[in-house]
Amino acid sequence: MRWGMVVDLRKCVRCYACIAACRIEHFLPIDVSWPRLVAMETGGEHPTVSTYSVRCNQCHDAPCVEVCPTGATQLRDDGIVYVDQDKCVGCRYCVIACPYQNRTFVSKDKDKGFFPGKVQTDFEKAGKELYPHTHGTTEKCNFCLERIDAGLAKGLKPGIDREATPACVNTCPAQALTFGDLDDPDSEVSRLIRENQGFQLHPEYNTDPSVYFIDGKIGTSGEAPTARPEKEAALT
């Protein structure tokens, strides 16, 4: 079993619902975001906007697991890469080693509160109890492993039953995100990858990501996207 995700870029409407859902699910500090939305223009005279909803790729050969000096970052048998906050020393070697820049070091600067200097909101207070974030350690997306584990314990099927499926996948109104077992050839994710030529980001690093992307153009047409960094701030 290897959990994986497919992001269908053709369906993404840039609503940021996945990011909001993750923020609520994990009570993320104000300046921390596990998934991100990267938007870019492709083409010349009449450019089209492509949006990449990116998150930790849960790589099968994860550089972050390899470089972690304490064993805080580990790869589970089901392919999920997670960080044990109690073991992390905050050396940030994993942040450096991730080719996808999907890790965040949580410092006090990034957790100033929604209203700095004011009383905490009820949401923040609940977050401290239910999903505490340890300053001085590294974090990243973990495919909502708590939901998966709890769901499996109840006999539910991640990717099919909402209760056992990552929050971002549940929330996506355009159904651009699909979750399932990559090792199962009959799963929805395997079918989507097979039929739509799903591709991984930066395959040249041999990290074997568990997140695949589907795009009508990139990865199938052979056309390289033309990045326009100056537009990034406006779009992301």
Binding site: P69, T70, V89, G90, H135, T138
Partner: peptide, 12 residues
């Protein structure tokens, strides 16, 4: 280090 008191774990 973000958590210097755990430095001993680095040898793991």
């Amino acid at each position: 280090l973000g958590k210097p008191q755990r430095f001993w774990r680095i040898v793991s």
